[in-house]
Write a protein that binds this DNA or RNA. Structure first.
Lengths: 337, 337
DNA sequence: TGCGGCTGTGCTCATATGAGCAAGCCATGC
DNA sequence: GCATGGCTTGCTCATATGAGCACAGCCGCA
């Protein structure tokens, strides 16, 4: 591979690529134009593809990043992964991730008989993104308590109900607070046959669908009045990176505050870990730490996320990947004969 | 074309495109995955291409814009056109246009027996970009006078000589000033047998290669001391947009100042117009007006330029086209082979 | 209800393309 | 001087792909 030779070859490859991809000429025609055999044209084109001279991009809001999906699955032993290209805008990002989760749910096989869902902003968007009639006879059960104490009453319930309704199924709600103030109250409520029945049912769900929240003041738990900003601060001090189904975890996948956790009503982490299908939907910068904790400690089997999060999880520097891709423009030597 | 249908179809097309272009799957395999026939996959893919979901780009400094080249040729009745993609940088742009001109010259058929050249910064770069031995036995003749009065002596001569040497041919120079101060002097020099012989020879050249300059203070004529900034101002007042082979023209392709023109030594515009092969090499914002004048009035038969200039000539809005064509900074790795 | 036009589908067949292989080609080392 | 090994080149053949066609369902219109 002498440099002078490769310069001439490269120029030829560029010409061939132009004729093939922009002018839709056949390799045979290109051969005639460039005065080489059609086999050489074929080789030139594959070289051009290898060297990245030809860039093929799929520009569409619903596009996915299959290469990253494969990497994620392999690296973290996931059953499946969905990665959407990251748009500039955070709002748009959340919308696309939610849409992707809805798409995934629709085409997921086997169709779950009973689907366990958490609640929150993300899950609500997923519910809205699901088309009416996305499935038939899928029942839904809530995984964790979610009676809102302050704003937006009924958000948790409406998410579960919407998902069930759109699939022509029934929703079973867990009509309790997410976190109780006193351990005794929590135990009492848990002792109630209805409540324990719901949790039991949740344990038997054939799939879980849930999101995660960051350990900061934007958390839904602050919004809903279960936790104060002081509580969050204390959690962060204890190493909390975020929450799943109401439970705050640290970077090594353990409960950040066992006392608080004991007062949290709903499914435990172990059920997520051992579930056949546990679909985590999570996107955006602020959730990178919690996503990392979940994914590295087997707390989900399917991950739906955005490109940036995916790269962060894989440890790929994603600022650089945006900036590079410039070719060196060094080019000398004999042009086409 | 019901909207709901086209939405579903589009999503399918996106999936197909991903599998085909990013995963290198065969249409048959994709059919199996998406549960449609392979013919449908083929149709999906062509739809995706039509709708612009798939964007194929050739990223290489030596790439060309064949579509623009075709448009230019058709619109202005050119024999040929070469358009290079415009880089961000003006210096880089000049380099690429010059390189492209050199490439064109090398592969141009029939090989000119005698090549008439002008001089200037652009032509000098073209000369440098030509590979040694780019042709055999091509003689070169200078089209217009170019003894520099102040800086860079010998530039004009060295351009012609370099082009000839690299092709193993002889250069015939026109060792006179470009513009004389007095008409009498010009006539006297023109009357010299040697000088008139060179011009006669230039008339018989089988191809011309020349550039154009803008009508502003950056002009080589100011640099070389033939014209003062006042002269340029007066030319602009008379409607001059720039010069070719030393002659300043207006937007409608006529001589801007006949008196000045009479004192200008060298080939006339008519010879360019009637030449079989008149290769104009011109790039950059400042030369758009002069390029437009030349191209619309038949003063070149081959145009080598950059993308922005091409769009300006065609009347396409290029600020917009320049602004887009940025890729979203999403970048996946090389697709698997 | 029945009928022409129209779109979308699955096919046949010709063509374009890529994999794999034998032969040549250059440069090196003995 | 000559063999050798890595490389490119031009081929054969199997496969992937696109063009064109007949048919089916669907719509509006009488």
């Amino acid at each position: 591979m002498a440099p002078s030779d490769s310069a001439a070859t490269e120029l030829l490859a560029v010409r061939a690529a132009e004729l093939y991809y922009e002018e839709n000429k056949t390799q045979d025609e290109i051969g005639a134009i460039l005065r080489v055999t059609r086999w050489k044209v074929g080789r030139l084109l594959s070289q051009a593809r290898e060297r990245g001279i030809i860039r093929i991009e799929i520009v569409h809001p619903r596009a996915r990043r299959l290469a990253l999906e494969r990497e994620l699955s392999a690296r973290f032993g996931l059953k499946d992964a969905v990665v959407v290209p990251a748009p500039v805008d955070e709002v748009e990002l959340q919308a696309r991730v939610s849409e992707a989760a809805a798409d995934y749910l629709v085409s997921h096989r086997p169709i779950p008989r009973l689907l366990g869902v958490s609640w929150g902003r993300t899950l609500h968007q997923v519910a809205e993104a699901l088309p009416v009639g996305w499935s038939t006879g899928v029942n839904v059960v809530q995984l964790n308590g979610g009676v809102s104490l302050s704003k937006r009453p009924g958000t948790a319930a409406s998410t579960a109900v919407m998902i069930a309704q759109k699939a022509g199924g029934q929703a079973t709600l867990l009509p309790t607070p997410a976190i109780l103030e006193r351990l005794e109250t929590k135990k009492a409520i848990e002792g109630d046959r209805t409540v324990s029945g719901v949790i039991q049912m949740a344990r038997g769900a054939s799939a879980y669908l849930y999101s995660a929240g960051p350990a900061d003041v934007t958390s839904v738990h602050v919004d809903s009045g279960y936790l104060t900003t002081d509580d969050i601060e204390r959690l962060v001090e204890r190493g909390a990176v975020g929450d799943v189904i109401g439970r705050y975890i640290t970077a090594d996948g353990t409960i950040a505050d066992p006392e608080l956790d004991a007062r949290t009503l709903g499914l435990g982490l172990e059920e997520l870990r051992s579930a056949a299908t546990a679909i985590l939907v999570v996107g955006g910068e602020s959730k990178h730490p919690v996503a990392h904790a979940l994914v590295t400690h087997g707390l989900c089997s399917v991950l739906v996320t955005d490109e940036h999060t995916a790269r962060a999880l894989l440890g790929t520097d994603n600022s650089r990947l945006g900036a590079d891709s410039r070719l060196s423009d060094t080019n000398e030597g004999d042009p086409v004969s």
